[in-house]
Design a protein around this nucleic acid. Structure first.
Lengths: 217, 217, 217, 217
DNA sequence: AATGAATGAGGTTTCATTCAT
DNA sequence: AATGAATGAAACCTCATTCAT
């Protein structure tokens, strides 16, 4: 499915509103008002409100898929460098597309309520992501740099879950770290830096060879 | 605010439906039908739909607060035992009250949209939780068993975020670990066990004294 | 299903408008305006527009059914008298309930388009009607007053079809018989009288013993 | 008015859909989809949806008019033969153009609702038909073969009404005569045969000289 | 001559809430 | 204290039509 400029604009507005208020709480009127189009255009272009959110996921899923493919091309780096790059990349990606991520979180909470298509797209994307992560880890394991037992799915889930949680509780985070008075950008920079260092540490600790490991090998 | 039996029943039904479909997608008619009451009862008992969800958070927040107080009373155990107990307790708690947690996640995604009360209650709860965790960690630090630099808020966020992420993507999890054909209960048991061992490992790695740490001190 | 006063009033207004404009061309707004009720009342009372027309058929079918039962009780009359009475009764009935009959005709033209319920009710009613007519004819046949071969379904269809056709082309009828300038009531009286005498003649001719018939018997 | 090939095709599709669903329930989108043309073509070619149905009636009325003229040319036959031919012809004609007849019936039910043009065309057609029938009957009367008092308009109405009624209640007819399991074609053949024999009988009985009639003459 | 994008009015239905009892 | 009938606003969507090309 190809979408024209106007459709992409509507999708973009819808994404923002769905992120802010949720799908059900966002009316087609809201969208059409913000996008400065006629109310009937959403149905005209997408068929229905449900189809609109499907289109949103379709478009974004394709974009993310493309970015993932790039990630796997970064060869010539050490496995640990690649792990760090991957962690940084995932965190950056989520922060860059906060709106869409918010919508994803919402849709995950009521799986298959509207349409199985969204669930399928998301599962596919998550699996693709997992495979990418696994291939990097396996490389390190083959070289004996990483421990043999690494629970990649759990690590991946931990990373995603934490970033999401942080984004969902931004103001709580700022309170805890006393940065309420910084600008939005500075707050985000703080979160990103914190997340990156936190997860590099976690990953390092969780994949570096265990003592037993190194002895037996 | 005290709520009578009927009000609590309504709250309970609402919680389940809000968890399943979201606040906006759940109509008062849905609730009154499931709770076998008259449509006007929600407005009658709570004033409005918005007030109903506020009441839900009020009631549950009080319950959770009470449980947290208990946690801090488990003295006579080693700090590491208490950490493990705390991790287990948090995971258990979330799984026991999945519905409410689902609703919390949804509301966190649109902060202050409906009412600041919910955000305040949640922030308060999270802070209380954080203080409990910090007190346990600090105890271990005073005894020199834990490293001096532990980012408790990030650890807490990591734990919560991961559990939430796992619960939100249950079917993906089951696919990845090949347990789609197990019963619901067995799947949950699998998740709980996995989470507990995963986080005990993470916490251990992140709070145990670093080599430098122990040397310099 | 029992319908209250307000529902019956809505049904009555709907019947009139459906007769005049057809189901699809009649909006719920039209109905609510004429019935002086809120637009949402139709959905409130009947569930939907489709259910409304179902209710209309349900109510009227019950009424007609009751009237048919009465017809069969007119004993103590000669078969030919009963035939004449039946013809008169059917013609009167249709003219009295022209609106409903108009709606019936419309629905017959698109069978099962909306719901099978209407078709079923109508078929049931028509069969009931046919059985009544047959019982009267059979009585005359047993007494040797009527010919042995009478195609009752065709006679019944002929009667109904003709009355319907006449009602549908009222103005053409008036033109042909030159009674355009009479009042509505006089025109109808003319039609009724004409129909009654026409069909008494037809029925007589079609059920009286044939020459062969009487000889052989 | 002359219509080109494309217009005639649109008219034909519209006729079929109007017959199946009714004018109001048929959208221009339905038509354009079935006819494989652009939605705007209807407005473009006919001006509006209303004008489209007018065109339909115009075209078909002209066709029927032409066929009627032929009927009157069948000379050299006995009056009774010509009556029988006429009855057969009318029944055949309706069955051949069921779709259009269905639309006619629908429009008759809401006279002058949309435009007087349709009513006028239909009245004209019916009158033309009546004159043809009358001329045949009068011929028989002049020859003393038919009774002097024949109510031609009523006979004509009876014929049309019955055929229409039968077509409108096809499935009921099949139930009554136990031919539900025959093919569509066989069912129609059954109906046509039945109608023809039925009406030849009726016409014969209603126009043959009465006893008084023949005696006095 | 013909198209397809776009429109605004109006369709039905659902919603949270209120009112009279 | 509790009900259920009733309401008006607003939801999503479809409609016939127009406009720029």
């Amino acid at each position: 499915m190809e979408y024209n400029q106007k459709q992409l604009q509507i999708i973009s507005v819808a994404e923002r509103l769905f992120a802010a208020k949720g799908f059900s709480a966002t009316s087609i009127r809201d969208i059409s008002q913000e996008a400065d189009i006629n109310v009937s255009m959403v149905s005209y272009y997408f068929g229905s409100k449900d189809k609109l959110i499907e289109a949103l996921f379709e478009v974004r899923a394709r974009e993310f898929g493309a970015r993932l493919d790039e990630l796997l091309r970064d060869l010539g780096l050490s496995p640990m460098q690649r792990v760090n790059l991957m962690v940084d990349g995932m965190i950056n990606r989520i922060f860059e597309k906060q709106c869409f991520h918010n919508v994803v979180l919402r849709e995950q909470l009521s799986p298959d309520r509207r349409t199985p298509i969204i669930s399928e797209l998301l599962t596919e994307l998550k699996l693709k992501n997992l495979r990418a992560m696994e291939s990097i880890i396996h490389e390190g394991q083959k070289l004996g740099i990483f421990r043999s037992e690494v629970d990649v799915p759990m690590l991946s889930t931990t990373l995603y879950g934490t970033v999401n949680q942080l984004l969902s509780t931004k103001s709580y985070y700022c309170t805890v770290y006393g940065i309420q008075d910084l600008s939005e950008e500075e707050q985000e920079a703080h979160m990103i830096a914190k997340l990156k260092s936190h997860f590099k540490k976690i990953f390092q600790e969780m994949i570096k060879p265990e003592l037993n490991d190194s002895i037996t090998s």
